[in-house]
Nucleic acid binder design. Structure first.
Length: 308
DNA sequence: AGCGGTCAAGTTGAT
DNA sequence: ATCAACTTGACCGCT
């Protein structure tokens, strides 16, 4: 069964996640800050509920949750705890209901912390901030029943081997709630599947195979070969990423994402009968792209069912 | 109401 | 030495 995933936002559905810039908040007294943050968090919990309902109804079995769903949660000056927000208990309950909804309907959710979260950095300060951020994401992941927190290898710092050795060491410092969800994904600049798979297999870190990144930054491995190795890193349903190039494979920069997925870019080996797989669709037309791909695949493979 | 410039965080590579 | 690109909008503050 193939479970397609939607990433973070909607193109047409009126489902919006809200946030604020730190700059606009820093001048306010703490009580006003907390008031504004509380209303954003409450709104975003409601938007997440709507997003999950949409996915359930449309046979989208996976939803990636944006890290900013709790805006500025770990900001050095503006950071907060949900419990200290006005109406915090109700906000927590609203997120917990999202988790219950996912369990009831077999939906999967994931987090993808952005480029500032680095376990390979030589800087202890960067590492500590990153671990703090991962702790936050794991806390929220527990609340909404998400099983994936997916990051990249980070920088090379002039020596990939050493950087990956640092990353490996730092796995020991992660809380079980983080470690149980942490995954590593190949990127399109530095870390290829060939770089990451040995670490993932040795350390039991699930490998999120982004086939688009791999096609943009090839490493001599075949798609089928990476797919097979990636599967072995997962003790549950593997999660992969897929995109199509904006200007075609012969265009100027194939890394740019297209609005939609060209079904020809969907690897044939991912359609093998009996293979359960989550495929997050990184396409700018968002739910429209997932819905179209779902139609395109319908007669070739068993899909996560839509709620009738 | 509409517009353009800006947005917490790190790293790389183009200029 | 500086700055855009990462994913890519959404938000802010000005008119």
């Amino acid at each position: 069964m193939i479970r397609l995933g939607l990433c973070c936002i909607f193109r047409e559905q009126p489902i919006k996640f809200r946030r604020k810039t730190a700059k606009s908040m820093l001048g306010l007294p703490r009580s006003e800050q907390l008031g504004v943050l509380a209303s954003l968090c409450r709104l975003n919990a409601g938007a997440l509920q709507q997003a999950l309902r949409y996915c359930q109804a449309h046979g989208i079995g996976d939803f990636r949750i944006n890290s900013q769903i709790l805006p500025l949660y770990t900001h050095p000056q503006l950071g907060y705890r949900l419990e200290e927000l006005p109406g915090g208990e109700e906000i927590i309950a609203a997120f917990a209901r999202c988790g219950t909804f996912c369990r009831d309907h077999g939906l999967r959710t994931s987090f993808h912390p952005d480029q500032f979260i680095l376990l390979s950095s030589p800087s202890e300060e960067v590492t500590q901030r990153s671990i703090a951020e991962l702790n936050y994401q794991a806390e929220l992941a527990e609340l909404v029943a998400a099983d994936v927190i997916n990051i990249h290898g980070g920088g090379a710092y002039g020596d990939k081997e050493q950087a990956l050795a640092r990353l490996t060491r730092r796995l020991q410092r992660l809380r079980p709630q983080v470690r149980a969800r942490l995954c590593l994904e190949n990127d399109d600049r530095i870390y290829t599947p060939r770089d990451l798979l040995p670490l993932c297999l040795a350390e039991g870190v699930p490998f999120v195979y982004d086939v688009h990144h791999h096609r943009c930054l090839p490493d001599g491995m075949e798609v089928a070969e990476v797919t097979e190795s990636a599967r072995r890193t997962w003790d549950r349903e593997p999660l992969f990423h897929l995109s199509s190039p904006r200007d075609g494979w012969n265009g100027k920069n194939p890394c740019f994402h297209h609005d939609f997925i060209d079904p020809a870019d969907f690897p044939a080996v991912w359609l093998e009968p009996g293979l359960d797989l989550s495929v997050e669709v990184e396409a700018k037309a968002k739910e429209l792209a997932v819905n179209r791909l779902r139609k395109d695949l319908a007669d070739r493979v068993v899909l996560f069912p839509d709620g009738e």
